[in-house]
Simulated scan of single mutants.
Amino acid sequence: MSIKVMVVDDSAVVRQVLSGLLNAAPGIEVTHAVADPLLAMERMKTVWPDVIVLDVEMPRMDGITFLRQIMGERPTPVVICSTLTEKGTQTSMDALAAGAVAIVTKPKLELKKFLQSNASELVGAVRAAAAANVSRLAPRAAAAVPVPRVKLTADAVLPPGEPRAMAQTTEQVVAIGTSTGGTQALEEVLTALPRVCPGIVIVQHMPEKFTAAFAARLNSLCEIEVKEAASNDRVLPGRALIAPGGKHMIMRRNGAQYFVEVADGPLVNRHRPSVDVLFRSVSRCAGANALGIIMTGMGDDGANGLLEMRQAGARTLGQDERSCVVYGMPKEAVKRGAVERSLPLSAIAAEIVQQMSRTGGRGES
C-alpha cells in the first residue's frame, strides 16, 4: 500500500512542487495539498494521512499549534518543511519537542530549485516518518536525515587500522549514536543522569544549526553539562558533547585525557556527523574504557563502529525494539554481533552510571 501524504503549506508553488516530487516517488501518494491547518482538518475528516508534511508559518493557525493538536488527538508522523533561519531554529526545536518526526529545511530564495535538487532528502524523511512508531513520538522526536545516493564507510574519514591497546583506567567514556527518534531518547537518558557520571560523546543525526539549539535545550534540563562540541573540547565526567550538524566528531587521546576534534569530510553512511566515525575513534583511543550505545534510528550507521568498539574490549548496548521509534540502527548492530545486550530506553541511564564503577588499576597503555 502507498504511503498517504498530506501537504500543508500556504505557498501554492510549494504545494505544487512537493506534491509532484512525492507522487513521483514509488509507494508515496499525496492525497491532499492544502493552504492551512483548518483546511487540513476538514480534509482529514474523510481521509487520514499516514504522514503530514507541514509548514510552520501559515495564516489562521501556525504549524506548531496544529502539530500539538494532532499529537494530542491522534498521533501522526509529521515532517516539518520550513525555512531555516537563526530566528527559526528555536521554532524548529519547538516542533521537535511537540512531536515532529523530521525536519527538512528550505531556503527563502530559489525555493523551487532547492526542493527539486533535494527531493531525495524529502522522500527519505517521509519514508522514515511512515516507519516510525508513533506511540513513542509524542511529545518529542528527531530531525530529518538527508539521504544522498553514494554511501561511504568510515574509511573515508578515519582510515582503518588496528586499535591501539589501552589498559583500563579510571577515565571512562560513553559514546552514543542515534537518529530518528533520538532527540526524545537522548532527553530521557540525559535528564536521568546525576552530575557525577562518565564523560559522554554523542552523534545525533541532525542538520546544521540544529545541534546548538538542541544541546542548549538539553543543558537547561539536565544536571550534567550538555554542549555542542568544538575542537579540543575535553571529554570530562559530568559533560556530554554533541557533534555539530554537518561535521564529523572524532575522539582523540593525549596521555590519560580525552578530547574531541570536529572535522569536515565526506558523508559516511550518508551522514555527517556519522556514528561509525565516532565509534571507530572511540574504539581506538579508549578501548576497554568505553561503553558504546546505539539507539533508535533508521539505517545502519553505527553498526560497524559498535562492532569495532566491542572487538576493542568496550562494553556495548543497543536500545531494544519495543522502546525504539525506529528499530533500524540497533537491529543492524545486533545482526552484526556488535551488541552485547539490548535494553529498554528506561534502563540505559543506569547502565551509564554503572560504567563509573569500571575503574582500572592494570597499568598504563
Rank of each mutant, 00 (worst) to 15 (best):
A98M: 07
L115V: 07
V104E: 09
A131T: 04
A102Q: 14
I176S: 09
V147W: 03
T169G: 12
T153W: 00
A138L: 04
L96Y: 10
A128I: 06
A100N: 06
S92L: 15
R127V: 13
C81G: 02
I80Q: 02
L137F: 08
K87A: 11
A131P: 02
P107I: 02
P77K: 02
A130C: 11
S179F: 07
A129N: 06
V126H: 06
G88H: 05
P163E: 06
Q90V: 10
D155H: 09
N118P: 04
T153I: 02
V145L: 11
L96F: 08
A97L: 15
N133E: 14
L84Y: 04
T91M: 13
K106D: 00
A102C: 12
A156C: 05
D94F: 04
D94L: 11
G99M: 06
A130S: 14
A100W: 04
R127T: 09
A131R: 13
A95K: 02
E171L: 11
E121H: 14
R149F: 13
G177T: 08
K151Y: 10
A156G: 05
A95I: 06
K108V: 00
A98Q: 05
T170H: 13
A95Q: 04
K112V: 14
A95T: 07
E86N: 05
Q168F: 02
V101E: 07
A138D: 03
V126K: 05
P159E: 04
L158Y: 07
S82L: 08
T178P: 07
P146Y: 00
T85W: 02
A131G: 13
K151C: 14
N118F: 01
